[in-house]
Design a protein around this nucleic acid. Sequence first.
DNA 1: GGAACTCATGGAATCGATTACATCGACATG
DNA 2: CATGTCGATGTAATCGATTCCATGAGTTCC
Lengths: 342, 342
Amino acid sequence: MASIKDVAAAAGVSVATVSRVLNEHPSVSADARTRVLAAVEALGYRPNAVARSLRTDQTRTLGLVISDVLNPYFTELARSVEEEARALGYSVIIGNADERPDLQDHHVRTLLDRRIDGLLVSPTDGGSPLMLDAARGGTPMVFVDRWIPGVEVPVVRADGQRAVRDLVAHLYGLGHRRLAIISGPAATTTGSERVEAFRAALAEYGLDLPDAYTGQGDFQAESGRRVTEGFLDLPEPPEAVFAADNLMALGALDAIRARGLRVPDDIALAAFDDIRWFVHTDPPVTAIAQPTGELGRAAVRALVDRIAGRPGESVTLPARLVVRRSCGAPPAQNPATNRSES
Amino acid sequence: MASIKDVAAAAGVSVATVSRVLNEHPSVSADARTRVLAAVEALGYRPNAVARSLRTDQTRTLGLVISDVLNPYFTELARSVEEEARALGYSVIIGNADERPDLQDHHVRTLLDRRIDGLLVSPTDGGSPLMLDAARGGTPMVFVDRWIPGVEVPVVRADGQRAVRDLVAHLYGLGHRRLAIISGPAATTTGSERVEAFRAALAEYGLDLPDAYTGQGDFQAESGRRVTEGFLDLPEPPEAVFAADNLMALGALDAIRARGLRVPDDIALAAFDDIRWFVHTDPPVTAIAQPTGELGRAAVRALVDRIAGRPGESVTLPARLVVRRSCGAPPAQNPATNRSES
DNA sequence: GGAACTCATGGAATCGATTACATCGACATG
DNA sequence: CATGTCGATGTAATCGATTCCATGAGTTCC
């Protein structure tokens, strides 16, 4: 592969001049410029990003560590992150943690070894020493969706509190009183927060959230299935189940179906995170939609600010309830209850 | 950030010795080794992968350019690719082409600039000059899922021919005679191949595939919707629609639902690519399942072979039909029921 | 006892870029 | 005419690793 030296030789100039042409330095004669450009063209030369990064100490690359690539919410997030980053002249390297803290650490480590300019993380746990060190050690960092309390890092996320209250109101209005939740891991903020919001909303209606009605999942489908089976085995099963993410809702659907029960007639179901498929499931699933695309873009902007030495502000955007049929209501007036955003 | 020089100074040895310790070179005294290791630990030193890559001319990184991250098939593929690569000591950088040739080129270019060791591509088109040059220019490369004819590059893919024949047999057995297909872009192999397999299978049953029954999509949901609407507007609409990927099937479902029609009573639907959600759609969708995980792993192995200078073999694995309810039959008790031989 | 070898180590070249500094010619100014 | 300024260019240092080569100490063997 041709290097800058080859170009310099072909154009009859020094490597410094070639570099100047490539970096649009003003002090280059028109003659030199055309000769260099011609040589670049002739040799099919492309600057070696590795060498450039070593010298300039910047890679123009962002790291994104997400909790689970198989979760449509995160792929949509990843997509918007890459899009915005590209618009700002950055590349993105994605690391998939599969909800495993050890894998998350693996990715953070290799990303750091590659000297990425900044790191976007949706932590799967309360924070490993590695990540804490990186945050404190001056690596520009931004948390997205989930975060780690007590760390001085901007957070970009959706606030579901209002939407959860709307959901509980919706369920209550349909006559459901025994409401259960499949939560995420307590170590994640989205795991505990959603339970708290749910509990608080129930309290407003004078309802209680017994331990038997709070199942601990791990944001993966299988755990949703397991927890739901536990609910169904109860002497008095819940009338409605709220899954804290879309994959656990899928698992819940599996469990309910396996028992020959029907949604919403036998049991109501709702989920956090709205995805396209929820429109076509049997029945269409009522869900809380996050402004995923906007979250990704805001996170990138905050991170690029940090990289540039600017503060980088935290952003919280509202989530909203999208009512469909899985809780028992007839479809809303407007039959086209599709998703918006995106 | 501490460099190898700092470690050398702290340990009282030269940088050469530090490097030897880190690379497990045999000629290092036990004493020097422990001092270096202690210094590494004390400084929290991590080797700079950028510098290492520049010197060794290898990044231990694979590039993966996929056609669409929002397509569950490709995220599953990406996941298995990353997994196998990690097991073999490689990282993976994913580029999402969004089915756009220009974006695909962008990612191939930046990946090449980063001097990745090898490239895994699922081309969105017939091949840009850039990619063709890279393939001929000696960049280790492997095509996965889709490929470009006439290029000397190993191909790892699933063969759906048999499964498509099984599907047609299934549809025929249910009494459907007017069968239509929503194809992918003709420039992609999976776009044209699936149509050809479908046409050939129809021929076996003495059926014809008129132009009006072949809609051209682009593997995105919206095109599935558009094409399906065209089908439904026909004076004699098809009795069954086969979508060449899962997203177009989703679009087809949208279109059918918007007309107030029902699957499979009013029209049958089947899709290429099986995904988890198809179990829970209304109705569950009959689909052709690819061995996605195995494809990803085989592709990585082939690529790593090429990188090591070994030949790197092409692999073709069979896809299989998964019958659900969207074509009209109750799920068959006996799997042999779907195999009505011609 | 000395040649031949092995082993541990350090010095310095190298990878491919960027960039500070030096040089040189052309031109303007007093 | 001497001096200063400016634009174009080249030389060489530099980034942080790896690795070739030289060196010197310690062993082995005849």
